[in-house]
Structures are given as structure tokens and as C-alpha cells.
């Protein structure tokens, strides 16, 4: 990364600007990717340390979301550029309030921002989910492969039935 040479003048000036942009994009992406990999390694090391450490018993594991392949928030949840957007429903649930339920906070540490994806209509709002149900639910919501996503929802349904 860093300031590069000035683009020379001439009729192909625009193409030269684009070439320079592409070069710098490549260098920038590589630098960011290197940092991402470093962070991912550190987090993996930390998680394995947590599991091996004195406080890493089964009852003490922190509820962490699915890290998946390390995808970042902009891949899933944010839009790019100035594209126009479509209409949709608000989609607010009613799981707020003081649901008396042991377990987690409904959070997913480490996962980055994303909107829900195709929640089937028969799926309840999740307000009474326990940790396992919530993890399956979150995994299904993040899954981009439709077959795998449906399999996860089916898993969720089965688990909820067995509760």
C-alpha cells in the first residue's frame, strides 16, 4: 500500500488510471487479507487455548457463533456502492421482554453482520430457544447453500420437537 506514481498523460489516460487502480486494489486486498489471516490464526489459537484451559469444561464454554470460513460482514450484510434497493417486510419478531430462559444471550461472537436468509414460515420466532437450538438457527440463517440451509432448518424443527 502507499502512494504510487502519477498516471502519465495521453489519450489512454483513463485506461492508465484504471490500471493503476487495479494494481493498488490488488496490493490493498493482499495487505488486508494478510491481517485477516493473522487475526483468524490468533482467534483459532485463543479458542483452542480456551478449550484446553482450566476453565474450558463443557459447562463453561462460551457460546460462540459459527465462524464459518472467516467471511466478513461486508460479504453478507452490507450493500456496496449506490445501488437501489427493493421492498420487503419489517420482519420484527416478538422475542423481546423478559423471557425466562437459561442459556445464552442470543448472540453470536465472531460472526459478522448479516441479514436473515429465507426463514421458512413454519419456523417459530426463537424466543424460547436454548443454546443448541439457537446455534442451529443461526447456522441456518447464515447458510448460503440452499440445500444445506434446508437441512439445517429440518434439524432445527426436529430438535424443537424433541424439546
Amino acid at each position: 500500500m502507499g502512494a504510487g506514481p502519477s498516471v502519465p498523460g495521453g489519450e489512454d489516460r483513463r485506461a492508465a488510471i484504471d490500471r493503476r487502480l487495479e494494481e493498488t486494489f490488488g496490493a490493498f486486498d493482499a495487505a488486508v487479507r494478510a491481517t485477516q489471516e493473522q487475526i483468524a490464526r490468533e482467534r483459532a489459537g485463543q479458542q483452542s487455548e480456551d478449550q484446553q484451559g482450566p476453565g474450558g469444561g463443557p459447562g463453561e464454554d462460551r457460546e460462540r457463533g459459527q465462524d464459518g470460513d472467516g467471511a466478513t460482514g461486508s460479504e453478507a450484510g452490507s450493500r456496496g456502492g449506490l445501488e437501489s434497493v427493493g421492498a420487503g417486510d419489517e420482519g420484527d419478531g416478538q422475542a423481546g421482554g423478559a423471557a425466562q430462559q437459561g442459556g445464552g444471550s442470543g448472540t453470536a461472537i465472531g460472526s459478522t453482520g448479516s441479514g436473515p436468509r429465507n426463514i421458512p414460515p413454519d419456523i417459530p420466532d426463537g424466543s424460547d430457544d436454548d443454546i443448541v437450538a439457537r446455534q442451529i438457527r443461526e447456522a441456518a440463517m447464515k447458510e448460503t447453500d440452499p440445500e444445506l440451509r434446508e437441512a439445517l432448518w429440518e434439524e432445527y424443527r426436529q430438535y424443537k420437537k424433541g424439546q
Binding site: G88, D89, D92, G93, A95, G97, G115, P116, D125, G126
Partner: peptide, 12 residues
């Protein structure tokens, strides 16, 4: 133990 309101369908 309060729970944050979750989306029950895709948010536009």
C-alpha cells in the same frame, strides 16, 4: 433474562 427481539423473516 431479557432477549433481544429477533427477526422472524427476512428483513428487506
Amino acid at each position: 433474562q431479557m432477549q433481544a427481539t429477533q427477526a422472524t423473516q427476512e428483513v428487506g
